[in-house]
Structures are given as C-alpha cells and as structure tokens.
C-alpha cells in the first residue's frame, strides 16, 4: 500500500490504519539496524555485553520498533504531513520478537488552519505484549 491509496475524505474518528506486520527480528536485522541507524550501543548486538549486564540475550533497539511505526505512518500519509509524534517504550522486544504496528484515529481537530488527525499508536508482539504506545499528529490534506 502506498500513501496515495488513502481515501482522505473517508478518514474519521475510529478509522484504523492498515496494520504493519513485521517478520521476526533476527540478529542480522539488529546488526544492520545498528550500523544504519548509528546507534552502536553494544547491548543490542553483542551477546557478551548483554550477559555481562545480567541479561539472557541481546534485545532490539527501541528505535527499530519506532522506525517500523514510522513506516506505518508514512505508508498512510506522505511524510510532509507528519507534524509530531511521541512514543513510550513499554517493554523490551527480545531478539526473534515479531512486532505488529497499529494505528487508529482518535480525534480530528482544527489546528492553525489545518485538519489534524490524532492517531493512537501501538506495537505488540505475537504473544500480545505491548512494546510501544504513543500518538501522532498528522495533517489531513
């Protein structure tokens, strides 16, 4: 789905964004994301460091899940319309975790001459664990 497919006239409170289902997060994805994003914190890529911190394994960057949410948003609306967004990282995403990103319009308000949709955001794993929660403000056409 590309953002041009969204029928803006039908967007209303309660409208749901098409969910974005991701494959399980592999160690390769974590290594690529560390290099591509610039976040080189070894806790995400080096098992020795994770174990030295008392963890059983490495875990995914929170910003990887937020980047997936970014895909959900820019797949729905052109990036120029994304005004602001905020997330809270509610739980760690373990390696092999399988995230699904969801969004739902919870309000539409007139702000500075623009119609702004507030989109409630969530990322959950296959076992139902909520890993990210937040919201975005997106200008409708």
């Amino acid at each position: 789905m590309s953002s041009t497919d969204t029928a803006w006239t039908t967007v209303d409170v309660g409208s749901e964004l098409p969910p974005l289902e991701l494959p399980p997060i592999s160690r390769t994805t974590l290594a690529l994301f560390a290099g591509a994003s610039g976040d080189h914190n070894p806790i995400h890529i080096d098992l020795d460091v994770a174990k030295s911190a008392g963890l059983p394994d490495v875990f995914a960057h929170g910003m990887l899940s937020m980047a997936y949410l970014g895909r959900l948003l820019t797949g729905w609306a052109p990036q120029q319309r994304l005004r602001s967004w905020s997330v809270r990282f509610a739980a760690i995403t373990p390696v092999h975790g399988q995230p699904t990103c969801r969004g739902r319009v919870t309000a539409i308000d007139e702000v500075d001459g623009e119609r702004i949709a507030t989109v409630e955001l969530g990322v959950t794993l296959a076992d139902g664990t909520l890993t990210l929660a937040g919201d975005a403000r997106i200008a409708l056409a």
């Binding site: 970014g70 895909r71 820019t74």
Partner: peptide
C-alpha cells in the same frame, strides 16, 4: 533496507522528487 522499507520514495531519487522532496527524505526517526 535495515527497516524493510520498500516505498521507493526512501531509496529512489526520482520517486522522492515525484513525491515533492528535493532529495531522498530523511525518514521520521
């Protein structure tokens, strides 16, 4: 590539320009 983004706006210069960007857009995060 790392985040599995397949929208050509984020990797193809012509698609980015057609979408109104001066160059490849810096994605939200």
């Amino acid at each position: 590539h790392a985040i599995g983004e397949q929208d050509p706006v984020y990797s193809d210069l012509d698609a980015a320009r057609a979408a109104g960007h001066g160059d490849l857009p810096v994605p939200p995060t």
